[in-house]
């Protein structure tokens, strides 16, 4: 069961803060939901900096990023 971070509608930099908290908890995979390309790129960058693999899936106007080790 993936851990889900719902960061839709949140201003910068909260999606990244929530993602980093989830990463620190150490349970993978993590699914991050965002609704802007800005947040998608910010979360992707933060996850890649943490050495994680990132898979992005477009869901209508929103995105789901799946972070795995």
């Amino acid at each position: 069961m993936a851990k889900i971070v719902d960061a839709r509608g949140l201003s910068c930099p909260q999606p990244v803060i929530l993602t980093r908290q989830a990463i620190d908890e150490g349970e993978f995979p993590i699914e991050v939901l965002v609704d802007t390309v800005t947040s998608r790129e910010n979360v992707r960058r933060a996850a890649e900096r943490a050495g994680l693999k990132v898979q992005v899936e477009a869901m209508g106007d929103e995105f789901k990023l799946t972070l795995t080790r």
Binding site: C12, P13, R20, T38, E41, A46
Partner: peptide, 19 residues
Amino acid sequence: TRFCTMGAWRDVILMGDTH
């Protein structure tokens, strides 16, 4: 590019991100 002069310093202080 999401250029932001506040975000620039914030990201460095918050997480050492210099993007």
